[in-house]
Simulated scan of single mutants.
Amino acid sequence: MTELMTEPVSEREPAFWYLIPHGYMQLDLNPPVERIEALARQILSLPDEMRDRAEEVLRFYAGVVTSLNAHRVQACMVGSHPDDTGGIVFSVLTVSTVPTSGANAKLVIASLAGAAADNRDEGMRPLELPCGTGFLVEKKLRTTAPGRPPEGSDTPPQGEVWQGTVAVTGTGTPDIIMIQLVTASVELADDYRNILLGVAHTVTFTDPSLPEEGSSTDPEQWSATASVRSDFG
């Protein structure tokens, strides 16, 4: 686990750690210039019939990365899991930070958790997590679906997704941590809710690489601690 130290202390994001669930692959949100240049060279060397499609994919990836960085996303993971019919279902898990504009983040979370307790029928409910109080919001949304518009139409295809979001903060942390999971497999919402809550329960604001007080054991040897991932990579 390595924290990026390129920014001044006052400008760095708050440090927090969490477990990445099985079946999720993390996207590189800060690819080095050399890698992008190498991809561009590979695309230019492709046959004409493949080059346009490859360029489209690269532009899409660049647009996604730019958008995620603009929204303070610290990590984005794509999950793939087998379903009951032998197929594969996909989901996207993101972890981001939301500034509270000078307000006390813990008081903001407590207020929203209280509102969640009064709005359970709207898909909101408070959570008591190991790292502190938080809340869960879940909803079904109509959104643009992958693929080309139907023939004769300029309107992109639409589809329904399930979206679950957990918000939490910690002592000394000026921002709210948002963990969000989105999937088009709406019928599997219960399973994905369990994944989301499982990740939320692993969030910690204490560096797991540090030995516990009174312990001389190397924490890197602990299987659970060794698998905890930092928001910095």
Rank of each mutant, 00 (worst) to 15 (best):
R59V: 04
R59P: 01
A62L: 11
A62P: 05
V64M: 09
V64G: 04
V64Y: 00
V65Y: 00
T66Y: 10
T66P: 02
S67N: 14
S67G: 12
L68C: 07
A70V: 07
A70M: 05
R72H: 14
R72K: 09
R72F: 03
V73E: 03
V73K: 00
Q74P: 04
A75N: 11
A75H: 09
C76K: 02
M77V: 13
V78H: 02
S80M: 15
H81K: 12
H81D: 09
P82L: 09
P82S: 10
D84C: 10
D84Q: 06
T85S: 10
G86N: 10
G87Y: 04
F90R: 07
S91L: 02
V95I: 12
S96P: 10
S96L: 02
V98Y: 15
P99R: 10
P99D: 09
P99S: 14
T100F: 10
S101T: 15
G102F: 01
G102H: 07
G102S: 08
A103W: 00
N104Q: 11
N104K: 10
L107F: 05
V108H: 09
I109K: 06
S111W: 07
A113W: 01
A115Y: 06
A115M: 10
A116N: 14
A116Q: 03
A116H: 01
D118N: 11
D118A: 05
D118L: 13
R120P: 00
R120H: 05
R120M: 01
R120C: 02
D121E: 13
D121Y: 14
D121H: 11
M124W: 10
R125Q: 13
R125M: 15
G132E: 11
T133P: 11
T133W: 11
F135I: 04
F135D: 00
K139L: 15
K140H: 15
K140T: 15
K140G: 14
L141I: 12
R142F: 04
T143P: 08
T143L: 10
T144E: 13
A145C: 07
A145E: 00
P146D: 03
P146Q: 01
G147N: 04
G147K: 06
G147D: 08
G147A: 12
G147P: 01
R148K: 14
R148A: 12
R148P: 02
P149D: 06
P150R: 07
E151I: 10
E151T: 08
S153F: 13
S153R: 12
D154E: 13
D154Y: 03
P156Y: 05
Q163E: 15
T165Q: 13
T165G: 14
V166A: 01
V168M: 11
V168Y: 03
T169L: 08
G170N: 03
G170W: 03
G170M: 05
G170V: 13
T171S: 07
T171A: 09
G172H: 09
T173S: 04
T173V: 09
P174E: 02
P174C: 07
D175I: 03
I176H: 06
I176K: 00
Q180R: 12
T183M: 08
T183R: 02
T183L: 01
S185H: 09
S185I: 00
V186L: 02
E187L: 08
E187H: 13
E187T: 08
E187W: 08
A189T: 00
D190L: 02
D190A: 07
D191Y: 09
Y192A: 04
Y192G: 01
